[in-house]
Nucleic acid binder design. Structure first.
Length: 431
RNA sequence: GCGGCUGUAGCUCAGUGGUAGAGCCCUCGGUUGUGGUCCGAGUUGUCGCGGGUUCGAACCCCGUCAGCCGCCCCA
């Protein structure tokens, strides 16, 4: 045997958690899943990989894609499709929808909670492997605008229940800004939308400077900045049909969301999203209680035609994605996530001595049958050791089976130190 | 992909040319059926890696890799 060890180290951008943190992460996921399902979204899971050609069907992707290959593959072998890790869940959804088109019921409402991979430089809130929790709805030929309002409603409920402080979902409609730019005959719309998108990060002056670089005239910049900072949607005069349509849609969506608390959802015309496939409504979400983290933790929007690269149908959709790992990591690093137990167990059953091993095991089993999570201590070690084990793991109760034939069961609450006689067939935690 | 900063024990760090340290964590003990405190003992290191300068390098120089932050982009 060699004593040479490969010293393990974390791989940057590929997070992993200790059990007590993972426990919280799982609770979050359970909660989000419950909310999604309460609105009737069904779950699907797609493979971690897609064919590289599928990922690139919409043209070149500027994201860094991880490619998967076999170590012993034949270099000349062209018979194998090149596989790549998916970088989001929207492209896999499009492929899935096209592929199973005849077996799906439309509007197709699905949620997906999986890891995705992007080869970007890691930073706080930016990883190379991370979870996203997506909900999307896809219709055939048309999809009611009401779904555009359902997205933020579902998301607000999901995030609100996580106890992460105040969140704000910002909504806009790309048709508004794009309509205006078109009316002004501006060529490089993508550059302009990217500049505008940075408003809350670099401020008005920063955006103005960027727009100058983008080649806009003073008047054009004034017009754009005035629109983008407008608070009152009804006061805006549309410059063309597209802009008018966008305004009407946005006003409709906001109207549908009146039931949410003040400030939970706001219209913000500076939200346009980078280049992406969004064509109408767009969403971004900020953590108001962590102002130093300005990036969105939950984004999405409407796309006119999701799957045209994979099927000859017109399939409009609207969707939104919680950047789960980003959200979790940012809150954790900022000390907003309190971890508790290092174990899911409610009870540690003590092993009193070797003679009572069978009884201890039966006791644990009786408690488990009643829905409790129970760990049994297997080594016949001194009680101090067994108790301190329960304490370190954060298990709240310790169960003492009888030490001798005919003795009584006892259970101890480690927080209150209270120890009482109890029957494993009737005892409950809250009693 | 570009720019800045940083690499010493599992963690946080001290050590600026002369035999590698502290605190925390961890393990054991402080006797026989009850933890968290306290006391005692103990384990833990290619000083990121490679080269150079020097009698001598964790320390100075060069390179390299890794990490963090910012940019780009985005969840």
């Amino acid at each position: 045997m060699s004593n040479k060890v490969y010293k393990p180290k974390a791989i940057s951008g590929f997070p992993e958690w200790l059990p007590e943190v993972r426990l919280v992460e799982q609770q979050w996921m359970d909660h989000i899943r419950r909310v999604f399902e309460s609105y009737g979204y069904c779950n699907i899971e797609t493979p971690s990989v897609e064919e590289l050609d599928v990922l690139r069907a919409k043209g070149e992707v500027d994201k860094e894609i991880y490619v998967l290959e076999r170590l012993h593959k034949d270099d000349d072998d062209e018979s194998e499709a090149r596989l790549a890790m998916h970088f989001d869940q929207t492209v896999p959804l499009a492929r899935y929808t096209a592929q199973h088109f005849n077996d799906l019921v439309f509007p197709f409402k699905r949620y997906q909670m999986q890891r995705v991979w992007r080869g970007e430089r890691p930073q706080l809130g930016r990883m190379r492997e991370f979870y996203q929790c997506d909900i999307d709805v896809i219709g055939i030929d048309n999809l009611p605008l009401h779904f555009d309002a359902e997205m933020p409603a579902v998301i607000y409920e999901a995030l609100e229940g996580l106890n992460i402080g105040r969140i704000q979902i910002k909504i806009s409609n790309r048709k508004i800004l794009l309509g205006l730019l078109e009316s002004m005959d501006i060529k490089d719309m993508i550059a302009v939308t990217r500049s505008v998108d940075k408003l809350d990060k670099i401020g008005v002056d920063g955006v103005v400077q960027n727009l100058e670089v983008d080649g806009l005239s003073k008047d054009q910049i004034d017009t754009v900045m005035t629109l983008v900072q407008s608070k009152d949607l009804t006061s805006i005069t549309p410059a063309n049909e597209q802009m008018k349509e966008g305004l009407e849609e946005l006003i409709f969506v906001m109207d549908q969301l009146k039931h949410l608390p003040e400030g939970a959802v706001v219209a913000d015309l500076s939200i346009v999203r980078g280049l992406d496939y969004y064509t109408g409504t767009v969403y971004e979400t900020n953590l108001l209680d962590i102002p130093e983290f300005t990036s969105s933790v939950c984004s999405g929007g409407r796309f006119d035609d999701l799957a045209s690269s994979y099927i000859n149908k017109h399939l409009p959709g609207v969707g939104i994605s919680i950047g789960f790992s980003r959200l979790f990591d940012v809150l954790y690093q900022n000390g907003h996530i309190k971890t508790g137990a290092k174990s899911p167990a409610d009870i540690l059953v003590i092993l009193p001595n070797k003679e009572q091993r069978a009884l201890a095991s039966e006791t644990a089993q009786a408690l488990r049958k009643r829905g409790l999570k129970v760990e049994l201590y297997h080594a016949p070690q001194k009680l101090a050791k067994q108790l301190s084990y329960a304490e370190k793991k954060g298990i709240s109760h310790v169960w003492f089976p009888p030490f001798d034939e005919g003795g009584k069961h006892e259970v101890k609450n480690l927080e209150t130190k209270e120890q009482i006689e109890a029957d494993p067939n009737t005892w409950t935690k809250d009693a």
